[in-house]
Amino acid sequence: MTDEPRSRRPINRRAYRAAVAAFTIAFAGGIVAAIGYWTDETGDLLGLGLAAALIGIGFGLVAWAKYLDLDEHVVQEREPLTVSPDERQQLRDEIAASKETVGRRPLLIGLLGGAFLSMVIGFVGPIGSLGPKPRGQRGRTSWRAGTRLVTSDGTPIEVERTTFDQLVTVWPEGRVAVDDSQVVLLRVPPETLTARTVDGGAVEGWVAYSKICTHAGCSVGLFGVDNRQPDTLRQLVCPCHQSVFDPVDGARPVGGPATRSLPQLRLAVDGQGFLVAAGDFDRVVGPVAWNEA
């Protein structure tokens, strides 16, 4: 079969028919897609029609190339990819010639280099406008002494709510949805809190931490709490990299990649019985820079 010239080889009937079918389906596909665009609200007809058109054309082209006359097995010589000695000498001559012409002015070359560098440095200035200089902005959030804790629709939190093992995301009053001030407020049975947490500003079982994970900054919204024996569980988990914090012990990291506890927001009660902050956080919230250890 391979001895005969290509033009006289018998045609592969099945492949030919397959290619014909493929192109025909592709043709139909395009029309279906057009109709689908005009009439079908779901977009499925459009997509399937386009897919049929594309796959049909692809299939037909490959079948044609592979089975019908066009497949071949030929050889071609490679050209050498190395530099011949003559060419190498030419390059050396060129470099030597350059040294004798351009290279005769070392002072100009030096000054040119210096000028270029200086120009680049000059341009660096506007690049600095891309962002402000860090001036400790991340060291302050919107929390102040006496700021009420409110939910996302502005409702303050009453101290006397009776339910334990609850979770609320809260913001400073008047500054809802400011990213660095997001706080996760929990209420746990007071006797479960460690002394360190109480000293850190917990009030009657209410304890508040920055919601920004100290590992990479995601919101720590996962409070797994089961107070039903025998399987009690109290953990704050960050859904991004599964850092686990202990909410009754100052949110110190007990699992996962986080290394620093969530900063605790010191709480107090105002005259009307609502929870307020007793001040801003005592350290930077969330992930920190290298000099904020």
Binding site: T151, T163, F164, D165, Q166, L167, V168, R187, V225, D226
Partner: peptide, 11 residues
């Protein structure tokens, strides 16, 4: 109620 490991969302 906060069944199982779910906290209560009292607010």
């Amino acid at each position: 109620v906060g069944p199982g490991a779910m906290p209560v969302f009292d607010t």
